[in-house]
Computed example of a mutant assay.
Amino acid sequence: MATPYVDKSVCISCELCANMVPEVFRMGDDGFAECFDPQGAPEEKIQEAMDSCPVNCIHWQ
């Protein structure tokens, strides 16, 4: 299974991913999004957040 990750050097802290899929993404103490539970939602739902990210900072690894 692929694992999502957030490239924090690109993240603009818009909170869209955390609002769309709070089971997987949250805003970290540094103010940027992070993936805290990569298996918290179906891949399709995670992909929707990736596709919606305005700066394309969420990727599969």
Rank of each mutant, 00 (worst) to 15 (best):
S52E: 11
P42R: 05
D37V: 00
D29H: 04
V21E: 11
E48P: 01
F25I: 10
T3H: 13
Q39E: 15
C17I: 08
V55F: 01
G40K: 06
P4C: 11
G28P: 10
V6S: 11
E23H: 05
A33K: 03
M1C: 11
G31N: 10
V10N: 03
V24A: 08
P54S: 12
K8D: 13
T3Q: 14
M27T: 15
L16I: 15
A33E: 11
S13D: 12
I58G: 06
L16S: 14
Q61W: 08
C14A: 13
Q47E: 15
M50S: 03
G31H: 06
V55C: 03
A33Q: 02
H59Y: 12
N19S: 13
I46K: 02
D29P: 15
G28C: 04
G31E: 10
C35I: 05
E34A: 00
C14K: 01
S52D: 07
V21K: 06
M20G: 01
M1F: 10
V6N: 12
S9E: 15
V24H: 09
Y5K: 11
D29M: 08
D7T: 06
Y5T: 13
V24F: 09
V55N: 01
A18N: 13
F36W: 14
L16M: 15
A41M: 07
A18W: 03
P42C: 02
K45N: 08
F32V: 02
D30C: 07
M50G: 02
Q39L: 10
D7S: 07
C14N: 09
Q61D: 15
I12W: 00
E43L: 00
S13M: 08
C11P: 13
H59V: 04
E15I: 00
T3I: 14
C17Y: 08
G40I: 08
K45I: 06
D29F: 05
N56V: 01
A2I: 07
C35D: 12
D51T: 07
F25Q: 09
D29I: 00
D37E: 14
H59I: 01
D37C: 10
V55M: 01
I12H: 04
L16K: 06
V21D: 11
D7G: 05
C17N: 10
E43F: 00
L16H: 03
I58K: 06
A33C: 13
C35Y: 05
A41E: 10
F36S: 04
T3K: 15
Q39R: 07
M50E: 05
M20D: 10
D7H: 06
P38V: 06
N19Q: 13
F25W: 09
A49Q: 09
E43N: 08
Q39Y: 15
S13L: 02
C14M: 09
S13R: 04
S9H: 05
F32W: 07
D29G: 13
M1D: 14
S52L: 06
A18I: 04
C14E: 12
M50I: 15
G28T: 05
F32N: 07
P4Y: 07
E23K: 10
A2G: 04
P54Y: 09
Q47N: 09
E43M: 01
S13F: 00
I58S: 08
G40Q: 09
F25R: 03
N19R: 12
C11N: 12
C53D: 11
I58N: 07
R26V: 00
P38A: 10
W60V: 03
M50W: 01
C11D: 08
S13A: 15
C57G: 10
C14Q: 08
E34M: 10
I12Y: 04
W60E: 03
